[in-house]
Write a protein that binds this DNA or RNA. Sequence first.
DNA 1: TTGAAGAAGTGTAGCCTGCACACTATCTTT
DNA 2: AAAGATAGTGTGCAGGCTACACTTCTTCAA
Lengths: 225, 225
Amino acid sequence: MPTAHYSYAYPHPAVTADVVSFTIRDEALQLLLIRRGGPPFKGSWALPGGFLDIGEDLEQCATRELEEETGVRGVYLEQLYTFGATDRDPRERVISVAYFAVVPAQRVQVRAASDATDAAWFRLDELPELAFDHAEIIRVAHQRLVAKLDYSTIAFQFLPETFTLSELQRVYETLVDSEIDKRNFRKWALALEQIEETGELRRRGNHRPARVYRLTQRERIAFIK
Amino acid sequence: MPTAHYSYAYPHPAVTADVVSFTIRDEALQLLLIRRGGPPFKGSWALPGGFLDIGEDLEQCATRELEEETGVRGVYLEQLYTFGATDRDPRERVISVAYFAVVPAQRVQVRAASDATDAAWFRLDELPELAFDHAEIIRVAHQRLVAKLDYSTIAFQFLPETFTLSELQRVYETLVDSEIDKRNFRKWALALEQIEETGELRRRGNHRPARVYRLTQRERIAFIK
DNA sequence: TTGAAGAAGTGTAGCCTGCACACTATCTTT
DNA sequence: AAAGATAGTGTGCAGGCTACACTTCTTCAA
């Protein structure tokens, strides 16, 4: 048992922030997991996260944990839900405030710059066994992500600063896991009035080059409909 | 300072559950507040809530606090958001897991059966000064409630088991604070396929009696659209 | 240099949904 | 029996969503 540095009249639970980080790699929705180096669930994969410092905001804590594992900063981060079942951690009572993050595809490789902990991206449809109730947390996060597609421009956060309409369409097709009509999609995307042409053209492969777009208000999630 | 009964290697925050309870009284959206009997914010109004017991689920805690203040059970209760700013409580670090509840108008008077604490319903547009960050919590709760009107049948939770279409329409009109066309509203409500006629008629006042409806699946929030 | 390959880019027509709008029905009270 | 009050009912128009196919522009290889 830890030595006594702090005391209370009644027991306080521990509080952690855990982060579900989504990205799109290889045309698939993936998320970041780390392998646990100690008990409980030693060797299992788990969400990155850690205990709240007593002088730190919840969101600061989530941001810090995410940065420690992925090296990325400034990505979209949103509080998801708070999980507090009494038996969710065998050591002591732990309340987990879960966040979900959307990491642009470009920035994914920055992970290699993080510390020596064993971290990896997994396809959402090929997840390993997970520690604690993290499978449940991921389920809720995915549900939230899909729900937000309908009423916000959160999908744009999967893309780097500039992108083509085809790239945007592929993001949506990956997220909803079905094909979308090209003309209808482009009409819809332009009608949002959230993107503008940069004036540049992107030439990739042996075909007509694509116009390049950017968000009119970078880093902003708009509510639509 | 409290005596030392528990100790940790590093400080744990306190965790509370606070509940924003909405109801409709006098054609207005109202919510339940209690007056604080001790410091901090002594004499101020605040949301009902209290510290999490170490062996108790978060939702259990919210349910318990709500029942202690209102006497009502089995009402709709949903986790709202977790507030954890470092300075939100002057005594110690407190993480508040906020819930929001919808209390049917009929059951409101049960509150009188609760203990001697000073509790009262306030119109949302006539709130007093509030303790802690409870004004912010209420703002978020109201926002969530209004958002849910668009994609769920949460508004039905403001009504008792049986109701007329006019009563349902008044609930919606109160919540969105504007008038709704009667024919369009009834068409919409019936098309949801969430309510059925009980076969009874309700006669109130000197006018044609109204058909009485009930939810086909009582206590269930349906997602629509 | 030319043509084949491959993604980029573009318009229309039908359908369905949301919204505006006014009168008749049935009961109570006097 | 007439007045007062809320319950209950249908249509038409506009705007948004969906389905659907061909041309443009570039690269690469013959």
